[in-house]
Amino acid sequence: MPIIKVNNLSKAFGGVKAVSNINMSVEAGEIAGIIGPNGAGKTTFFNLLTGIYTPTSGEVIYNLERKISSKSFKPYKMTGYGVARTFQNIRLFKNMSVLDNVLIGCHNNMSYGLLSSLLHLPAFRRSEAKAYDEAIKLLDIFGLADKKDEPASKLPYGEQRKVEIARALAAKPKLLLLDEPAAGMNPNETKELTKLISWIKDEFKLTIILIEHDMSLVMGICSKIFVFDYGNLIASGTPTEVQNNEQVIKAYLGGE
């Protein structure tokens, strides 16, 4: 039973098809990679998966805790459905501390009332203490616990990417969507991140879909790869299959 199923998904912006007719599925526990040249529609695809865009036609069906179709997607509901994501251009809350960034990730799992918020009643303290522990645990995993009070914008680029992943994990997702997690990292950092991604996948029992340009990362950990070009899914399969696919080679190297 696939955890995510995409049926004939298309998205057009004023006549320009950014994504057309995508069919795919990912099984639980997989790490799937999405690759393709710039402007191939990868991020648009992620935005469709997370309700930021509504499909022009077709649909996305999640089979996480329960069956959800893209008809009932709304960006703020996705973490509740078990889907969390990071962004290509890092969207941390820059002036908030690293800790607060991760605590926002816990948002959906907290639920004390307005009165508790205003008066700091026991429910407030209980819930906040629990969230604090969880957030610290996550920051520990990424080696960032000692930087918890720094404003997120003060961290180096690579660490900001990690905070973003920690923040997504704080939402306790079943499916994690990573948009270019290794962008801007040097080869050593990328290697470390590659290990970390496959480790958190097992540790948190996740399914991961990631967009990435760094082939060492993609080929290293993805069990399945989808190749986008001009909004179309031109190939899919295991890393080896994709590497030998003629259409893929053409898309990457150009030519006829």
Binding site: R91, N95, G105, H120
Partner: peptide, 25 residues
């Protein structure tokens, strides 16, 4: 007090980056 609660944090996150706030639920 409100600012220091999770509701207050949610408000601040909107002020910082509305799209990211939504993506975090």
């Amino acid at each position: 007090n409100f600012i220091k609660s999770y509701k207050g944090r949610a408000c601040i996150s909107i002020g910082e980056d509305e799209i990211a706030a939504e993506a975090m639920g």
